[in-house]
Amino acid sequence: MITPHTLNRALMILLMTVATLWLVIPFTMAILWSFVDPAAPWTPDHLLPPVMSAYRWEFMWENSLLKPALLNSYTLAPLAALVTFVIAMPTAFALGRYEFRGKEIAKIAALLPLVVPTFVTAIFFTSILYQIGLAQYRFSAILFAHTVLFLPYAIRIMSVSFEQVRQDHINAARDLGASAWAVFRVAYWPALKPGVLATLLIVFIKSVEEFAIAYIVGQPGFVTVPTLVYASLGQDFNRPNAAVLSLILAVPNVILMLFLERLLKSANPALSSGKG
């Protein structure tokens, strides 16, 4: 007997299984490959690598551009997150709190950059960078580019957050004599908090794993983790080395994503009180 409930359950389990495999298989493969010892190659007749060692990890750490790449990526990403967030705020505030003519069009226009493939943006963006003379400052050029590129995410998330702020909470606080700061703390911040964290995390993750701009603008001297990964996939393809790099790229992101998921979940119920 198939009831909607059992069907629901079955589909849920299926989804969970697919999603788990989606994550587990590539990660397991990457982990296994990163531990393959160069003395004994992992051939198809072996289910597991015949000899496992941390050699690749040590090798990549000592003999590649991993250290500067990590430094670049992990200073770029938080800065990009902060700058994007700050620049997105006024637009998001206007889209979330005010009614004006053409608002829906403005909303779509703010999202448009997402439609264009990053590589296309990257190529034209580089030419703009050259024209305004920013190209030689590679770090700031990439920071600038990332900010522009990820602005739509920040605007979108923050404008939804601003919509969540309830006017009656603002009015209640003001009516009881609250200062501007107190109004922000009691009426705005609880509704904005998840959005603020989500914006910062998403831009951070996007920036850490962004390749096209970092590659085109940064070539040849400036490396980030993704450009390093792609490089080792391209020129001298070495699966174990690429596995090490991709794990270094992916693991912090997955952890951040899980963290984000928890944040968004925990934030919602507190917003609902009363009706209307």
């Binding site: 309830r166 209640a172 609880p190 009180s273 009363g274």
Partner: peptide, 14 residues
């Protein structure tokens, strides 16, 4: 003045 709102407008996290 003090206003009692139709939606109560209680601060949900307090």
């Amino acid at each position: 003045t003090a206003l009692c709102f139709q939606s109560y407008a209680l601060f949900p996290h307090l």
